[in-house]
Design a protein around this nucleic acid. Structure first.
Lengths: 185, 185, 185, 185
DNA sequence: AATGAATGAGTTTTCATTCAT
DNA sequence: GATGAATGAAAACTCATTCAT
């Protein structure tokens, strides 16, 4: 039941937004009562925090798996772009909730999530720095800004990209990797 | 008064979000009463619509001014990137409200704004198509996807870029133009 | 309306207790809606604080008026007993709410009220000390304990005394004054 | 377990009040679940009734033991004052719950407790009447009112008296007995 | 003897909006 | 132009109680 609630909430939060989704909305879909919700979650915010934690922890884990492999930096970068774009297909709703609703976490929770989010970004930054050092990438590009650019390109995709549309996630990832690598090489 | 209300609302919506900002919050800052608000605006949503209209209309006007000049496509693209990044400095709060709170417009209003937003994007797309036709840009890049990439890079900046920080808006615009043009050339 | 709400609340709090009286109960009696309640009071607790403040401030004021007169200490004591017993008739409900529901004030408010309540007690204590010094009362009686005894006797009356019953408030006050003065003289 | 629940409940009811203490609060302290509570008690109110019954039955029993001895009425009165003040030390929490939370008993239970409580008071009244008849006490004092005064003085002590403080329960009982006996003799 | 899942009716509080003045 | 009183619908959350296991 706890899992069902989380899953339905993600869908509703994605469609209507966190503030606009009431506990009533959530439990109505599941055919249970508000009491049930509060049996499993101490508050609406804690549910959101659970969703956020799940999402970012999973993403970080997969990013670190990439970083630990033996590949060229440019290949790792490509893999991360694929990871992010591919996620639209697999965890689109979770991701959109993650990007949009972090503001509704209370300060302490927000802080925790923010740190992990920054960790993800810094990992990309490190990759670029290494690429520059090892001569793979142009050295006049500030690594932090390039990292923000990559996140901008990929994260913005969550707002428009339809993985069941004309062009596939793989193709989009390929185009973006090409664009970025061409841009920084 | 109407202008004052709009201006204060933008700041509050930016800080706390549309749903989390009450009419009471707005009028408190101005030292007036709720009645006053409803004398100037028929509803909270109409206020949001006004903010959105102002923002997107202004942006479109300035984009069209660029498009009408006699420049290379790559120069126009650069000018648009500058326009968007420069706006963080000049209209940051408006912009952030625009990106984040569009969801709170009722269907009819949302539609209008969405059309203009798409118009902005299609104008960029057109620019890229022309650049490809005229041999300025690589022809293996789908123009629509490149347009989304440009918007991603620039719009994402609203989330992290501090125009009073170490690096200036002009410098950031230059870096991003370089990155993009290098990527697609 | 604010006054009406306060007055009705006192009656309901007296009958059913603070926790057992809902805002709905209060506004139902007055034929208005919950919104109206919150137009006048920021919270249920603040209403209780208002009631408490009104009551204790008034009592302290009247006590101090007695203390400032030129009378024997024993006469002043008598006057205070009359004040307290007479209050059952005039402000019985307020008084009962005051005695019973202080616990529901949040710490900060509770502190303020507690201080004033102690002031009232200390004023009685002072009176007794003076009476002992001036030879009016027995000196083997600890003034603080006597003060508690007086408050015990009078405050307990709020729990059983019916001013419209067989014996009048004046008569009860006279009996208690006699009892106490005889006890400490 | 039943005894443990009762005992913990008394402490919690004393600290936070009956309404403010949830079944969850009680079982949390004991490390069991709500089901356990309902295995032993049919309702929250019945638990309160148990607490009340225990307390008042015990008190009545001990009062009657005093009444059956061969002593002067004034000595019996003294013994009852000692009984009540001494109880602050031994059963303070039970007593405070008894005084404060009787209101939460449903009508039928409330009636039963009220009767016993009145019995206790009437026993004191009878003692005073006998004392007057036998010439021990002044005859201008109405026995019922004197009984209320005694209860006022002693019961009020539950609100301020700390048996581990400077003055002992025995000493307080002695002072109060002196005060009362002097007052009515 | 005890648990864990679920309920349903209730609680305080919020807030966009209306409207007579 | 602006106010102040009032509304009504909904929000998040609480909790005594039930019951199958």
């Amino acid at each position: 039941m706890k899992a069902k609630i989380k899953q339905q909430s993600i869908l509703l939060f994605e469609q209507k937004g966190f503030s606009e989704t009431s506990i009533q909305d959530i439990v109505d879909v599941l055919g249970v009562t508000k009491g049930t919700f509060y049996y499993y979650f101490p508050s609406k915010e804690q549910l959101l925090m659970d969703i956020h934690s799940n999402y970012i922890d999973d993403l970080l884990r997969r990013q670190e798996a990439i970083q630990e492999t033996e590949m060229y930096n440019r290949e790792k970068l490509q893999a991360i772009v694929e990871l992010l774009i591919g996620d639209i297909q697999d965890h689109g709703p979770s991701a959109r909730v993650f990007f949009r609703e972090m503001r509704h976490l209370a300060s302490e929770n927000a802080e925790k999530v923010k740190k992990k989010r920054e960790q993800f970004r810094l990992n990309i930054e490190k990759l670029i720095s290494q690429g520059i050092e090892e001569g793979e990438f142009r050295n006049e590009m500030p690594p932090d800004i390039v990292a923000f650019a990559i996140l901008g390109v990929t994260n913005w995709s969550y707002q428009w990209f339809n993985p069941n549309g004309e062009i596939s996630a793989e193709r989009l990832a390929a185009i973006y990797s090409d664009l970025i690598l061409n841009g920084i090489t």
